[in-house]
Design a protein around this nucleic acid. Structure first.
Length: 466
RNA sequence: GGUCCCUUCGUCUAUCGGUUAGGACACAUGGUUUUCAUCCAUGAAAGAGGGGUUCGAUUCCCCUAGGGACCGCCA
């Protein structure tokens, strides 16, 4: 058996959506599991809708989530001439024929079928007609001569055996009247040329597979193995499309979901391995198989994505986490000033405990990133006379503390609680608001220590607390 | 409408004829705590319905219902 090769074949007509990412992931993991190659093919034959920017974005997205393809990307539009050659060969061999029906004629047939409520299928008018009868003013399309009798069986590795009557597959167009190949032809020729052994793709291609199988058969090419994975559905239970909310990879990266987390989530969406939930990269490759793919569609669950991301934030090495945070902030928020990097990196140890996303970490570390405190108006109202007194006392007393850490601050805080006849909240809350502008945030000791003595004194000295 | 596919807690899923139907997320309650969280414990929560086959069905078969995909000279 030849070396396993899988491929992911997106069309660059929009941003890569999450279902595509999962398809790519499954193909990639399958290939890596088998020690094979994973290839990327850009299906850009629709000139109207294909855009280079989407192609770049797809490649960028795959890179982001850590899926790397073997050898250069295969650009379908550069292979059109070989597709056409095959169409001509099929024509010569009698597996295809020229169809001179006009657009109007076809439309008319469709309309009539709709009225009669019978399924439309091209009536094979030119299948056996002599070309001498061809109208001069019409450029023909080339149609594949599909089987009419009998049944065809698809041995699908996910769906099992699927059998359909051949007469439900129409004589589909393989070459348009402008001479360009259509999807089913191009895909088949490319997959064959690329030596693809396993085609793992969305459920929505199942019927196409029956068309493509006939081309393989006519050309006497080895049939690859097919595996059609169930689609990802929206909350409403419909096929997820790029137009849906939270459907593209960017929707997740921009709120601070990390690639490891999204990869792990997508792996477990529609695939399982016993009760295991967390798979690092090595485990993903080691355990991935087609048997674990379920047959029913699954819905996206943002809570689960967030929870997965939270897990990775908490369990990731801080160096790595910081690098990701840095990139995230630069790309989506504001750049972390280089002089603050060390301080923030050190603070991750507590910042990460309160975060589900990189965005959360960013929000919780704003008090460190910015030199100016941005006060929440509502929270500021909580600062009363006693609060001001406590702030002043605290500020005064820390000036004499030489070692600025939790141990040295604790007695001081406790003393303030006693002398002001209050509880921890009575002291902690005003200090937190004064230092960060908000009553929510990291633990007060963490805030104070991470800011450092000078900065704390400076912030507590703000005129509004006098 | 035709063809094909699917159906276990709200969600993702485990179970490959015998289980108190398990786990995870979300949810609820309680505990820890220094706000918000985290963390820990506990709880509620499922085999679409009906027939078979079988000593025994969530599991195998059939029907019904519900859902989905496809039905382009798009990919």
């Amino acid at each position: 058996m030849s070396k396993v090769a899988t491929r992911f074949a997106p069309s660059p007509t929009g941003p890569l959506h999450i279902g595509g990412v999962r398809t790519a992931l499954f193909n990639w993991l399958f290939a890596k599991n088998k020690g094979g190659n994973f290839l990327l093919r850009i299906e850009d034959t629709d000139k109207e809708r294909s855009k280079k920017e989407f192609q770049d974005q797809i490649i960028q997205s795959l890179k982001w989530i850590g899926i790397n393809y073997d050898s250069d990307e295969y650009i379908q539009s550069t292979k059109i001439s070989s597709h056409v050659k095959i169409a001509e060969e099929l024509l010569k061999k009698g597996n295809a024929y020229k169809c001179y029906c006009s657009n109007d004629e076809i439309e008319e047939q469709k309309k009539r079928a709709k009225q009669k409520k019978i399924p439309y299928i091209y009536d094979r008018k030119w299948r056996d007609k002599n070309e001498s009868e061809a109208p001069k003013n019409i450029k023909p399309v080339i149609r594949f001569k599909s089987k009419i009798d009998g049944k065809s069986k698809l041995k699908d590795l996910v769906q099992g055996d699927i059998e359909i009557d051949n007469n439900t597959i129409e004589d589909f167009v393989i070459l348009r009247n402008d001479g360009t190949p259509t999807y089913n032809l191009s895909v088949t020729v490319d997959d064959h040329d690329m030596n693809v052994t396993h085609i793992i793709r969305g459920d929505d291609h199942k019927i196409n597979t029956f068309k493509q199988m006939q081309i393989y058969d006519a050309m006497n090419w080895d049939l690859p193995v097919f595996a059609h994975i169930p689609l990802i559905h929206t909350k409403e239970g419909k096929k997820l499309s790029k137009r849906d909310k939270d459907s593209t990879l960017d929707d997740y990266s921009k709120i601070g979901i990390m690639p490891e987390a999204l990869r792990n989530y997508l792996l477990r969406l529609g695939w399982s391995f016993k009760d295991k939930e967390i798979f690092n990269l090595e485990e993903s490759i080691k355990y991935f198989n087609l048997e674990g793919i379920g047959k029913s569609p699954s819905k996206l669950d943002l809570n689960r994505i967030l929870s997965m991301n939270e897990y990775y934030i908490k369990n990731m090495k801080e160096d790595n986490l910081f690098d990701q945070l840095k990139d995230f902030c630069e790309n989506n928020k504001e750049k972390i000033p280089s002089e603050k990097e060390h301080q923030i990196k050190k603070s991750l140890v507590f910042l990460k405990n309160k975060a589900k996303t990189l965005e959360d970490i960013f929000n919780n570390s704003k008090y460190l990133i910015s030199n100016k405190v941005n006060f929440n108006i509502e929270d500021l109202k909580l600062i009363d006379g006693t609060s001001k007194k406590i702030i002043a006392e605290f500020s005064n007393r820390i000036k004499s503390i030489s070692k600025f850490n939790r141990e040295s601050l604790e007695p001081l805080i406790n003393e303030l609680i006693m002398t002001n006849n209050t509880n921890f909240k009575g002291v902690g809350q005003p200090l937190r608001i004064a230092l960060t502008g908000s009553k929510f945030g990291p633990g007060i000791y963490d805030i104070i220590v991470s800011l450092g003595k000078d900065e704390v004194i400076k912030r507590l000295g703000n005129k509004i607390f006098v």
